[in-house]
Design a protein around this nucleic acid. Structure first.
Lengths: 334, 334
DNA sequence: ATGAAAGCGCTAACAT
DNA sequence: ATGTTAGCGCTTTCAT
């Protein structure tokens, strides 16, 4: 009672006990408490890729909101491998965490559904099919459309897409790209090369692009890491960005905001999404809601200096006077 | 016995039990087991700054080695704040983890010593004073010397240092800078501006530098983030790197290797250090060693394109023909 | 090889 | 207000 700050003890005795606790360096056994209380007040968070700076904002949001609600948070990662993700999640289930946040997981829907029987789950940036888990996503379809639209507004038509591999968000962004291209009557210009959500993935994707007989004038990469890798490959091939080719990324990570990169990118608010995830978990834990909820937050586009008009529309324009829209250098995704 | 793969059960019975486990979706209660076994097989890892890509390599190393040794790993971060770090660590102690890795912590020595009474601790990139905890560091004195020596080899004399704030590694790097400057008879050229181990910190530090009447010809920043922030400020002020000013970072993160940044940086092998940390923990857990051990790994310098000769030694050299030493673009710290 | 019993450190329910 | 007891789900020890 004393250790939990409850009443039912006289003030004098309380003092004695507290002193004894101090002296003996006593620490209540959380394991034993959790065993009998049947809850741990711990939330598990599985981050698919700790190296992707996008998750930095997500982590902050999760930590902040969890602390406000009195939960402890523990993190784990699957290092972009499905099997390791499964282990990480099993680990949390073994620990009997009270709730689970899965950030861009690549495990099966079935796996999530099964885990959902043991504990409330919120999935970030991916939809879930079962009735037990919630999701918080950014509208990747709309985000991809923003990217394409931005290029179109400059006059681009041949806009290629470097895909993001097997992640769920990547699939939706690809679909968003396809839809947007059709919407703008550019169905014939659709061009997709396969990539991965890493710098290496973007690098390879761009190399594929460079093999083609005629290059696109703009490239939309499935995330910032991928876009940066692509830029490396393109510039290594002697191309100038954005004069020869425009590049758009996704996530608006701190990387994109670096002056040396200054990448136009679709922004998704990781911090807000992290906070929402914790709110959804708390609702489930408290039994305040039994039906699934799927939050979708709106993306926006942050225009920096990697996008501009296509080459054929800037004849006579000298590089030094070309228009550069360049906003918010330091405005990362947090 | 069955769940632990032990013998002492007949094969037929075992099969029956395993089938029942499957059907009932039974999951052994790790909490109860840990309560009685007095160990959790869980290692806690507190990372001071999840946003710093240097720790990506550390995390991989830790995960890999821990998995090999049969430990589960859980991560937590203090988000660069001492108090949050303490909470994160308390959290792990409450959980009764079997071991604790603290990566570049900013908590007090006393705090670490106290925690060391409950559980084996290995501290990364910082020395510990007590007899109960071990440490794995890179030789920051030697690393700082490498940075200064590299500049000196180009002919630089006025080499400034942008400090890294209150982190332990930052203090040692500062000391290493001072020693190296004296060693190369450049004591009169010592110039330190205060920074922090973030992009913002480097940006501000460089702004301080820019206020001075005469600029240094080289800047050694306490880590890569800091160096990149400094480069932003310097280039915004119209300076060209490395023609007007050379820049060296520390950590050789994936950021430094980005083609658009291509930063000369002192490399410390995060992956190796992470693996060593787990080995030290395991030794302590198994009671194989009772005396503290302090591993020091040697840093190296990766030369890229942000360093070159000082302006006064390249008269008549046109920018296009200036020598650029540029190695290992994609050789990050992992 | 199998069963029964004790106890890890705590909370909750009941008794004093 | 305080003391006592049972039991959370497991492992370990001792009997069978």
């Amino acid at each position: 009672m004393v250790t939990r700050g409850e009443d039912g003890v006289s003030a004098e005795k309380r003092e004695v006990i507290l002193k004894a606790i101090e002296e003996l360096n006593y620490r209540p056994n959380v394991l034993a408490r959790s065993l009998v209380e049947r809850r741990t007040r711990i939330l598990g968070v599985m981050i698919s890729d700790l190296r992707n700076p996008f998750f930095g904002g997500v982590v902050s949001g999760i930590q902040g909101r969890a602390a406000e609600l009195g939960y402890r948070v523990l993190f784990n990662t699957g290092d972009r491998q499905r099997e390791l993700e499964e282990e990480a999640i099993e680990s949390f289930l073994d620990l009997s965490v009270d709730g689970l946040v899965l950030a861009s997981p690549r495990v099966d829907d079935e796996f999530i559904a099964r885990a959902g029987h043991s504990v409330p789950i919120v999935v970030l940036n991916r939809n879930t099919i079962d009735d037990l888990s919630d999701s918080v996503t950014n509208d990747n379809i709309a985000g991809a459309r923003l990217a394409v639209e931005h290029c179109v507004s400059f006059g681009h038509e041949r806009i290629a897409f470097i895909s993001g591999g097997d992640s769920a968000a990547a699939q939706v962004r690809r679909e968003g790209y396809l839809r947007a291209m059709r919407e703008f009557d550019l169905a014939d210009d659709i061009l997709i090369v396969e990539g991965v959500h890493t710098e290496e993935g973007g690098f390879r994707g761009a190399r594929e692009l460079l093999k083609m007989k005629s290059l696109p004038t703009a490239v939309f990469a499935s995330n910032d890491l991928c876009a940066i890798g692509a830029m490396n490959a393109l510039e290594e091939a002697g191309l100038t960005i954005p004069d020869d080719l425009s590049v758009v990324g996704y996530d608006n990570t701190t990387l994109a905001a670096l002056r040396h990169i200054d990448l136009t990118s679709v922004d998704q608010p990781g911090n807000v999404m992290g906070r929402s995830a914790i709110d959804r978990i708390a609702e489930r834990i408290n039994g305040e809601r039994l039906t699934p909820r799927h939050d979708v937050v709106a993306p926006s586009i942050v225009v920096r200096s990697t996008t501009g008009p296509p080459p054929d529309q800037r004849k006579g324009v000298t590089p030094s006077t070309k228009p550069i829209e360049n906003t918010s250098h330091l405005n990362g995704s947090e």
